[in-house]
């Protein structure tokens, strides 16, 4: 069962999560009662890394036009900064007393805080990246919504010109996202939906062309219109399913049944 929903987040957090768990277990089993070594240097390395993350994080916030990211990311940065301070305090306390129990608690609290804060930050960033893909998906939905008002060949050519780059981007982004996910069921749904969209797109265009040609010839267009609408609706459903799955981050037990 995957704990982290993307491979990138997993590769960043898993090693530290394992180490923190070990420390917590040692503490809970009261096997950490011996003298602690001098932790000044590793704590300084964490402090420097945190200072860099805060700098890079603020730049990301300032350069982003995603209001949700701008609103949520500062709290994650503060959490990491606060945790870093706890580690510095723990190190100072352990220097004075290598057997200090409050220092050990601070060390654990700090390490957990770094893990939690970094996790929140990565999730915040990841959700923002997902929103970018969803924005592209919604552009495709907007184009599909106007498929039924296309009545001339000129409009159809423009429709294809507008839709094609959007579909290409969605296809590329969803394909890359699918490869990033750790959850196999979510990956499979994205692959299936994307394949359907790729298959349906040329059929829809063909259906629209038939409708436009029949209309130009003054022939009956009821069936051609129904066919076109059905294909547009199918594509809309597939894109909506992609949007739904892109937003899933938690493990859903039922989906494995």
């Amino acid at each position: 069962m995957p704990v982290f929903h993307t491979k990138t987040i997993e590769s960043i957090l898993e090693p530290v999560a394992q180490q923190v768990s070990r420390l917590v277990i040692l503490h809970e089993e009261a096997e950490d009662g011996n003298a602690m070594p001098n932790l000044e240097r590793p704590v300084l390395a964490v402090s420097n890394a945190v200072a860099n993350l805060v700098k890079v994080g603020r730049e990301t916030i300032n350069n982003s036009d995603d209001q949700i990211l701008r609103q949520e990311m500062p709290a994650s940065l503060q959490r990491v900064e606060k945790a870093s301070k706890l580690l510095e305090e723990a190190s100072a306390m352990l220097n004075a007393d290598p057997y200090s129990q409050p220092a050990r608690k601070k060390l654990i609290e700090g390490a957990r805080g770094i893990l939690q804060g970094t996790s929140n930050l990565l999730l915040c960033f990841d959700e923002s990246e997902v929103r970018k893909i969803i924005k592209e998906c919604k552009k495709v939905l907007d184009y599909l919504a106007v498929a039924e008002v296309i009545e001339t060949m000129e409009d159809l050519v423009q429709f294809v010109k507008d839709l094609s780059p959007c579909l290409t981007k969605v296809s590329r982004d969803v394909d890359a996202r699918e490869k990033e996910l750790t959850h196999m069921v979510h990956r499979e749904i994205l692959v299936r939906c994307l394949d359907s969209v790729k298959t349906l797109a040329p059929i829809l265009i063909c259906g629209m062309k038939i409708y436009v040609q029949l209309l130009a010839q003054g022939k009956k267009v009821d069936e051609a219109g129904e066919n076109r609408n059905y294909l547009a609706a199918r594509m809309t459903d597939e894109i909506n399913e992609i949007i739904r799955v892109l937003q899933l981050t938690t493990y859903d037990e039922d989906e494995w049944d």
Binding site: Q19, L26, L39, L53
Partner: peptide, 29 residues
């Protein structure tokens, strides 16, 4: 993305710190 690299640096540094704390305990227990 730079933010991912920065986050990675933190977790590597924190893992090293915690590992040092754990290792010292195990040696002495």
């Amino acid at each position: 993305e730079m933010i991912l690299d920065a986050a990675k640096s933190i977790t590597i540094a924190t893992a090293a710190l915690v590992k040092a704390a754990c290792a010292a305990q195990r040696e002495l227990v």
